[in-house]
């Protein structure tokens, strides 16, 4: 419904605010209520001397190829699969799509 849309938007924008902190680790430990931790469970504990930002679980969620990030091994390869069966949803990223929409990006 309509009231949810603005909520979702706000949630997303709030998550992005702390990107600097996600990467470099902030001094103030402001816990954001919007950050989700569910992806953190499958992390191995062998890299625990590194600061683990709270929101990072969201980024790990995407289905990586067999264990690309499951361990602390040194992998740069990262695959995001396109889960939506409707390929039309990304048509505007192609030259066959709407150029005026793409220009807004």
């Amino acid at each position: 419904s309509k009231w949810k849309e603005s909520l979702l938007e706000r949630t997303i924008s709030r998550q992005h605010v702390n990107l600097m902190k996600h990467v470099y680790g902030g001094k103030s430990t402001q816990t954001s209520t919007t950050s989700r931790d569910e992806g953190d469970d499958d992390e191995e504990s062998d890299d625990d001397h590194f600061f683990r930002p709270k929101g990072e679980g969201n980024k790990n969620e995407s289905k990586a190829v067999d264990g690309a990030n499951a361990s602390s091994e040194d992998y740069s390869k990262f695959t995001n699969f396109f889960n939506d069966n409707n390929v039309e949803s990304i048509r505007d990223r192609f030259v066959t799509g709407d150029w005026s929409k793409a220009a807004l990006r």
Binding site: S62, S76, K77, F78, T79, N80, F81, F82, N83, V87, I90, R93, F94, R105
Partner: peptide, 17 residues
């Protein structure tokens, strides 16, 4: 579909790079 996923992400390089 992996390539479409990367295109969908946006950005000037893919996740690997």
């Amino acid at each position: 579909y992996a390539l479409l996923g990367e295109i969908n992400q946006g950005g000037v390089v893919d996740s690997t790079h």
